[in-house]
Amino acid sequence: ETFPLDVLVNTAAEDLPRGVDPSRKENFLSDEDFKAVFGMTRSAFANLPLWKQQNLKKEKGLF
């Protein structure tokens, strides 16, 4: 299941849709939104070091 970017960005855990893991908001973006937000594919993002993934998520309001 995916959700629009505005539902996930800068949203407190208690305000997220049911079933969304607040530590993994990026997994609930569509592939198109994911690429638009991070400028890379999911596989490229997954290959980044964890610290870099976290920094990007913070920068984009998805942490």
Rank of each mutant, 00 (worst) to 15 (best):
E1D: 12
E1A: 13
E1W: 09
E1I: 15
E1L: 15
T2F: 15
T2S: 09
T2E: 06
F3D: 04
P4I: 04
P4G: 07
L5I: 12
D6I: 10
D6S: 14
V7S: 09
V7Q: 10
V7I: 12
V7A: 09
V7H: 07
L8V: 04
L8G: 03
L8R: 03
V9E: 05
V9L: 13
V9C: 09
N10C: 14
N10W: 05
N10S: 08
N10Q: 10
T11C: 12
T11G: 14
A12Q: 10
A12M: 10
A12S: 13
A13S: 12
E14W: 02
E14F: 01
E14I: 11
D15V: 07
D15G: 10
L16I: 06
L16R: 02
L16S: 05
L16W: 06
P17C: 08
P17L: 05
P17I: 03
P17A: 03
R18W: 09
G19E: 11
G19Y: 08
G19T: 09
G19L: 07
G19S: 11
V20G: 04
V20P: 05
D21H: 07
P22L: 04
P22V: 07
S23W: 13
S23D: 14
S23L: 15
R24C: 13
R24K: 13
R24D: 04
K25R: 15
E26N: 02
E26W: 02
E26Y: 03
N27G: 06
N27Y: 11
F28W: 15
F28M: 06
F28N: 07
L29M: 07
L29S: 01
L29I: 08
S30G: 05
D31K: 05
D31H: 07
D31W: 03
D31M: 05
D33Y: 03
D33V: 08
D33N: 04
D33H: 04
D33T: 07
F34K: 00
F34C: 01
K35C: 13
A36Q: 15
A36V: 12
A36M: 14
V37T: 10
V37D: 00
V37N: 02
F38A: 00
F38T: 01
F38D: 00
F38G: 00
F38H: 00
G39F: 06
G39Y: 04
G39R: 07
G39C: 10
M40F: 04
M40K: 01
T41P: 08
T41D: 13
T41Y: 03
T41A: 09
T41V: 07
R42P: 05
R42C: 02
S43Q: 14
S43M: 14
S43C: 13
F45T: 00
A46V: 10
A46C: 10
N47D: 13
N47R: 13
N47Y: 08
L48K: 08
L48I: 04
P49T: 05
P49H: 02
P49L: 01
L50S: 10
L50M: 12
L50N: 09
L50G: 10
W51P: 07
W51C: 13
W51Y: 10
W51M: 07
W51L: 09
W51V: 10
W51A: 09
K52L: 13
K52F: 13
Q53S: 01
Q54R: 13
Q54G: 07
Q54W: 12
Q54M: 14
Q54P: 00
N55C: 15
N55A: 15
L56D: 01
L56V: 04
L56S: 01
K57I: 08
K57M: 07
K57D: 01
K57Y: 06
K58Y: 10
K58I: 14
K58D: 06
E59F: 07
K60Y: 08
K60T: 08
G61I: 02
G61H: 05
G61W: 03
G61Y: 03
L62V: 05
L62C: 09
L62F: 11
F63S: 15
F63Y: 14
